[in-house]
Write a protein that binds this DNA or RNA. Sequence first.
DNA 1: CTTAATTTGTTATAATATAACGTTTGTTAT
DNA 2: ATAACAAACGTTATATTATAACAAATTAAG
Lengths: 133, 133
Amino acid sequence: MTQKQEQLSKNQQIVLSIIEKAKGPLKAYSILYNVQKKGIKAPLQVYRALEKLIEIGKIHKIESKNAFIVCKNSDCEISKATAFSICEKCEVVDEVSNVKLSNYLSKFNDKKGMKFKRFNLEFFGLCKRCKIK
Amino acid sequence: MTQKQEQLSKNQQIVLSIIEKAKGPLKAYSILYNVQKKGIKAPLQVYRALEKLIEIGKIHKIESKNAFIVCKNSDCEISKATAFSICEKCEVVDEVSNVKLSNYLSKFNDKKGMKFKRFNLEFFGLCKRCKIK
DNA sequence: CTTAATTTGTTATAATATAACGTTTGTTAT
DNA sequence: ATAACAAACGTTATATTATAACAAATTAAG
Ligand SMILES: [Zn+2]
Ligand SMILES: [Zn+2]
Ligand SMILES: [Zn+2]
Ligand SMILES: [Zn+2]
């Protein structure tokens, strides 16, 4: 009987729950400070948990910010197709869930004969709130 | 009489020429080692040049690799719309130049009322050479 | 139980990037 | 030309992000 549902380890659970509670992306060392009371003492423990959580699609890394955010789309086809909107002023980040966009990019083919397995897209601009001000 | 063509400073020229000569993306400290014979001694001198070169669209940052590559599309509308293909095996990086893709993404609108000014897209996969092996 | 794989704990260090300061150089307008 | 301003420079120190290396503990499977 194959275990389909990945079982998270203790550290993985701790790190995930911090990221889930956060309103926006968290940086690795900010996560570290937040979990030190729970027994996680070293950066590596955080980074290892992050690595696994990304791998199984529970969280994503916002590359332009070196920060980590929970996946809001039931695990994004295991992180193969990710898109985010990022406000350049207030830094609010939101995961873009648009099937058309996702399909368009997933089907996109390079002229050079390269077959893409994965993409990450980051949009930048001003969010509704910041536009008004 | 307004100076339309940006004139690069000495350090900016040095850093740009290193990046232009490179076959792929270069990391900041690798650039630093390469230019130490030319009088640039400190990381900040490199980072400042990189910042300006990005701003004027001469180079781009590959966010997932923390590396810098020359723009191959006559300065990419001043870096407002960038896309790259990245081989996960040999790490070769290529700038994707596709007008349809660029238009599609430039016109993409968020449901949340956010107007995007800029995007960066990174595709991952195996390049032609690496697929064969 | 045994073996292999994963996860953990720990120390140290590598790699990436910016703060703060004062100086120099380049541009613009008088 | 020179005063005023902005941009670029040089330098030192430090902050931030991430991984190497190794041993111990835990878990999953046969
Ligand atoms: Zn997601
Ligand atoms: Zn905002
Ligand atoms: Zn370009
Ligand atoms: Zn390749």
